[in-house]
């Protein structure tokens, strides 16, 4: 049995972050992009908890993780509202085709 330490957590969190980032960068569907963002946030949560467990920092990290989850929920609500508005405007949610920032 391998002794699970901080590095393992960080690796998992790094992989998760990378997957999230990849999803954000490559997905065409705006909803998928949002899901990528959720992955990134959760990678951060893992980091908070890992540092909290191994860093003798008390419960601060875990509380922060809870706060991030709440924040993520709020973010998801707002983001989905935005996506809905995008859909109303462009009749799709394909981020490739939304390039109005260019103008």
């Amino acid at each position: 049995m391998i002794n699970v330490g901080l590095n393992h957590f960080l690796i998992v969190s790094g992989i998760l972050f990378s997957l999230g980032l990849y999803a954000v960068v490559t997905r065409k569907n705006a909803v998928m992009v949002l899901m990528g963002i959720e992955l990134i946030l959760n990678a951060a949560n893992i980091n908070f908890i890992a540092f909290s467990k191994f860093g003798n920092l008390g419960l601060t990290g875990q509380v922060t993780a809870l706060f991030v989850i709440v924040l993520a929920a709020a973010e998801a609500a707002i983001a989905l509202a935005i996506v809905l508005n995008i859909y109303k405007t462009f009749n799709n949610v394909n981020v490739d085709e939304i390039d109005h920032l260019k103008d």
Binding site: L21, V24, V25, V33, V95, I98, D99, H100, L101, K102
Partner: peptide, 13 residues
């Protein structure tokens, strides 16, 4: 300047 958020993001990264 593509106007696509994802491209910008890649550049930022």
């Amino acid at each position: 300047q593509t106007g696509k958020v994802q491209t910008y993001l890649v550049l930022v990264i």
